[in-house]
Every structure is written in structure tokens, then in C-alpha cells.
Write a protein that binds this DNA or RNA. Structure first.
Length: 490
RNA sequence: CGGGGUGUAGCGCAGCCCGGUAGCGCGCGUCGUUCGGGACGACGAGGUCGUGGGUUCAAAUCCCGCCACCCCGACCA
């Protein structure tokens, strides 16, 4: 008997945790705030990684790897950066342990490090230290590097996938000769992220710019994609930062331009993390468990063979293998659950809770009739269909599931995006409905903070499209350049 | 860092108030019957009761300390 999943209506955040547990995506670790990513979760991450990695390479980037340890002094070089990250750094002070007679195993005082090391919370500092040695001339630019890595941020409050102390991510760090080129890079990546979210994750996203208070520590401008979860809360799904010359100046990274002048290098950084898995869960899944978009699902089609006698078993499994070959031939990831000792109903339930997009079942009756049962995870719809032409039909169904998930999520977002003209209306919508709320904003940090303090809603982004529409900020009464998007966020 | 909660078999929990043989469900092992939506029976394995101390003839249970984790909130990808 599987664990019961709390309904979304009953307790959304418990539901989220239940889905992760039932679908065997992750587990808690012995250390607070850290998670064990189980094979189901990791396979999902690998698929995300593969798709993104391809897109990065397509846009001219290369992978590299920088060390996990950073000299403590590096962090202090960029003022905003240190302020943003200092409070959540794991610090390494010793290099070995020893057995103390009274206290047992302790850090050996004799091994105290000359300089503390920090476990990277992000790699700007060590990378810009490196770039300063790699870059001398305009001919050395641009540098377009990405790395797949783990980072550690000593968070007060953690949630599986959404915020863990250690998480997996990719971080791109690019160096450019001109400001415009760096800005273009920032936006190129933002588009890559949006495309990935929508086409692979089937999660519609808004693209925009963060306000100063929500900006990355050390950035000149932070661009982001924001998604809306089923409970009406927003989730930042990816960020792309234009860093200006801040890090180049902090790490003294200059180059000689074509006019023989020394200039500081222009920088960007950008990242998405295993948090995307959290987004995926919260956007699509239901009370029966996980629902995965076919393009990312580790198993796209799960096949359950049904038999009683040995003879049936042989015939059914033979048919199952044929189907497997046909589907594999058209590039479908199919898995046959041929384990004896598990009954079909159990297997159905397992595929369901694990979010496998389509489930097939084939038994003696089907073998005789040349049919197979097809069940869609998204709609629950079950049909019996001829084996003839199955591969093509499966391709269509998977495409239709992928499309359907996106459309459903988009419809949800649209139904939960409200434009308001007064602060009272804003508060009312926030309480009763949640979601994205568009409202005029005067552009001041003061107003932004007041709204946040009073309602817990933050400006998720200043939209990149359709922003210029002058009006009045209903909170301050001051003029506004356009509507910005508010929400309560994870 | 504030609030709440929990530590007893692999997992979920009861037992604690009122001290005296450590229990239930799921899972696990063997055998048999089953198998088209999470099957059933029989037998069986599995526990330093988070940890240190105290009270007592006797502590999972009472007292004191410590540790850990989870959930909610503030802060943050």
C-alpha cells in the first residue's frame, strides 16, 4: 500500500511533500536541509540537464568546471556580493580530524587553515579571479562558459527541491568586450530559459526584470522567468544577470581594446537549479501523484503485462517486447514492468503516482484481439486500441499530453492573473484568489517595501512586453510608467 | 532566528497521564492460493525505546540537561 497523498485543497504544502515521497523523487538526509535525490528525481534532472546543455551549446557556450572551494577573501572583493551571500556560507577552517581523549573526534587544532575556505554559494568570484588571468586582449573575448555543479547556501528554512542547503544547478559566466554584447547575452539566455520552461517543462513563464531590491547580489540588472503554481503562488524559475563591470573591477579584469586602451570586461551570469523540479511538480501534478511532461519524463510509456498461466505469460511478454521494439524505434522511452510478484493493479498505481505520461496494458485478451489498452496520466482516459500503427499513435498521444499540460497551465495562469486599479482591490484579490496581480507601481523601493510589509506580496518582475502604459500608482498616488506583476512567492 | 511538533522495528504510529513481559499496521523472508486498478492465508525475521544524567527494588513511562529532525513564519535560488 502506497503512502496516502494529502489533497491539494486540504494542505498544498503537505501535498507537495507527499508527491515527492510517493513518486520516490527525493528523500531527507541525515543533515538538516539536505536532500537525497533518488533515481526517479535524478533521471528527471538528467533529462532537464541534457536539454538545457544542448541549448547552451547551440548558443555557443562550452562547459568547464571550477572548484567547490573558494578562498574566503575572494568573497569580500565585491561589496554587494559579500553582503548577499556572507550570511549563508559554509566555512571550512580545518583540514583534518583527530581523536581527543575527552571529546572524541574533533577538528585537529594543528590543522587550522591559513585562510578559511568557503564552499561556493555561487562561483562569480573564483571565476572572475580566473578570467582576470585569461583575458588580456579583445581577442580573448568573449568567454562563454557554463558549468554544471553543486552549490551550498546555508538556508534558515528549507523545502525539498525548492530550497535546499545544497543544490544542483548550472551557472553560466560570460565575459564580453562591450556592454551591449553582455546585455544581449543576458537576454539570449533568458530566452533559452523561457523556451526550455515552456517547450520541455510545459510551464508557461513570464519574462521580465527584477526590481533593485530583488536583484542578484552584485548585478546591475537581473532578468528572470516566473511561473505560477497551482496554489496561486509564484516561483522564480531562472535568472540571468547583467553584471556590468562590477566583478571585472573587483577582480581587476581588464583587456586592451582595438584602440589600444585598457577597459574593464563586461560580465553576465545565469543559472537554473534543481528547483525546476519543484516547479514541475507544483504546476502539473494532481492528488493522485506526479504528472510529468513527456519530453522530460524518464519513462514516457509504462507497459504492464497481464497474465496468469505460464503460457499466457510467454505470449503476453512476447507481444510486450514487440511493442517495446516498435516504440523504441521511433524514439519513445518505454519501460516494461515485467516483475513477477507484483500484481497489475499495483503496477498501474505505481506508474500513476510516478507520473508516467502514458500507461499501456496488455493481457491475453489483447494478444488474441491484437489490441492494447492505453491510459493517459493527464486525463485518466482509458481506451483499447489496435496494435496496428501503435508507434505513430503513441507519438501523437505523447505530443498531445505535452501540449495539453502546457495549455492547462497557461489557462490556469491566465485565469489567475488579475489587473487591479486600487490597493483595496489588490489586497482583496491577493487574499481571495492569489495569482499574478498586475498593478501600477511608481518605481520606488519605498512603495514596494510598503506593499511587501503589508501584504507579503512582492514585485515578481517588471514585464518585458507591454509595460509602457502610463498611469498612477494606487498605493502612493505617484505617476507610474506601467503595470508590474505582483504575487506571493516561494 | 521566532512559533509549533516529533524522536519506540525499514516506514507510519500506539504505549507514557497511572513505572513492572515492548506492541499494532504497512513493508520484509518462506510456502501456498492469486493476478484486467494498490490480493489473501499460514509461519517467520526484525527494537541499545534519540542521548547523558537523576529518582526507584524496577524507567519507553517520572525529573533535569543535551542533541537531532520535521512543519509553520521572518529572510533567501
Amino acid at each position: 500500500m502506497a503512502d496516502k497523498i494529502t489533497s491539494r485543497e486540504n494542505d498544498y504544502s503537505q501535498w507537495y511533500l507527499d508527491v515527492i515521497k510517493s513518486a520516490k523523487l527525493a528523500d531527507y538526509s541525515p543533515v538538516r536541509g539536505c536532500m537525497i535525490i533518488r533515481p526517479n528525481g535524478y533521471a528527471l534532472w538528467e533529462n532537464m540537464k541534457e536539454a538545457l546543455d544542448g541549448m547552451f551549446k547551440e548558443t555557443g557556450h562550452q562547459n568547464a568546471y571550477f572548484p567547490i572551494f573558494i578562498p574566503q577573501s575572494f568573497l569580500a572583493r565585491e561589496a554587494d556580493h559579500v553582503e548577499g551571500f556572507a550570511k549563508e556560507c559554509a566555512v571550512i577552517t580545518h583540514s583534518r580530524l583527530k581523536v581527543d581523549e575527552e571529546e572524541g573526534l574533533i577538528a585537529d587544532p594543528a590543522s587550522e587553515l591559513e585562510e578559511n575556505l568557503i564552499v561556493r554559494p555561487t562561483s562569480e568570484t573564483i571565476i572572475w579571479d580566473t578570467y582576470s588571468r585569461w583575458i588580456q586582449s579583445w581577442r580573448d573575448l568573449p568567454i562563454l562558459i557554463n558549468q554544471w555543479a553543486n552549490v551550498v547556501r546555508w538556508e534558515m528554512r528549507t523545502r525539498l527541491f525548492l530550497r535546499t542547503m545544497e543544490f544542483l544547478w548550472q551557472e553560466g559566466h560570460t565575459a564580453h568586450a562591450t556592454e551591449q554584447e553582455a546585455i544581449d547575452e543576458t537576454l539570449t539566455i533568458l530566452d533559452v530559459y523561457a523556451k526550455f520552461a515552456e517547450e520541455y517543462m510545459a510551464v508557461p513563464v513570464l519574462k521580465g526584470v527584477k526590481t533593485a531590491s530583488e536583484r542578484f547580489a552584485g548585478a546591475v540588472e537581473t532578468y528572470c522567468i516566473e511561473a505560477l503554481m497551482q496554489d496561486g503562488k509564484a516561483l522564480q524559475a531562472g535568472t540571468s544577470h547583467f553584471l556590468g563591470q562590477n566583478f571585472a573591477k573587483a577582480f581587476d579584469c581588464q583587456f586592451q581594446n582595438k584602440n589600444n586602451e585598457l577597459e574593464y570586461v563586461w560580465a553576465t551570469s545565469w543559472g537554473v537549479s534543481t528547483r525546476l523540479i519543484g516547479a514541475l511538480i507544483m504546476v502539473h501534478s494532481d492528488d493522485a501523484g506526479l504528472i510529468l511532461p513527456p519530453r522530460l519524463a524518464p519513462v514516457q510509456v509504462g507497459l504492464v503485462p497481464i497474465y496468469r498461466s505460464d503460457e499466457d505469460r510467454e505470449n503476453v511478454l512476447a507481444a510486450a517486447r514487440e511493442i517495446e521494439q516498435e516504440l523504441k524505434a521511433v524514439g519513445i522511452r518505454i519501460h516494461i514492468d515485467d516483475r513477477d510478484g507484483f500484481r497489475p493493479g499495483w503496477k498501474f498505481a505505481e506508474y500513476e503516482v510516478q507520473g508516467v505520461p502514458v500507461r499501456l496494458a496488455i493481457g491475453p485478451r489483447d494478444v488474441q484481439n491484437g489490441t492494447v489498452e492505453v491510459a493517459r496520466r493527464d486525463s485518466g482516459e482509458k481506451t483499447s486500441t489496435p496494435r496496428e500503427g501503435l508507434a505513430d499513435r503513441m507519438t501523437e498521444i505523447l505530443e498531445s499530453v505535452q501540449q495539453g499540460l502546457f495549455e492547462k497551465a497557461l489557462a490556469h495562469r491566465e485565469a489567475n492573473t488579475t489587473t487591479v486599479e486600487s490597493y483595496d482591490e489588490f489586497k482583496q484579490v491577493l487574499e481571495e484568489k492569489g495569482g499574478f496581480i498586475r498593478m501600477h507601481w511608481d518605481g520606488t523601493e519605498e512603495t514596494e517595501k510598503r506593499i511587501k510589509d503589508e501584504t507579503k506580496a512582492t514585485i515578481r518582475l517588471i514585464p518585458m512586453e507591454g509595460y509602457e502604459e502610463a498611469g498612477v500608482d494606487p498605493v502612493s498616488g505617484n505617476p507610474s510608467k506601467g503595470y508590474v506583476v505582483f504575487a506571493r512567492a516561494y
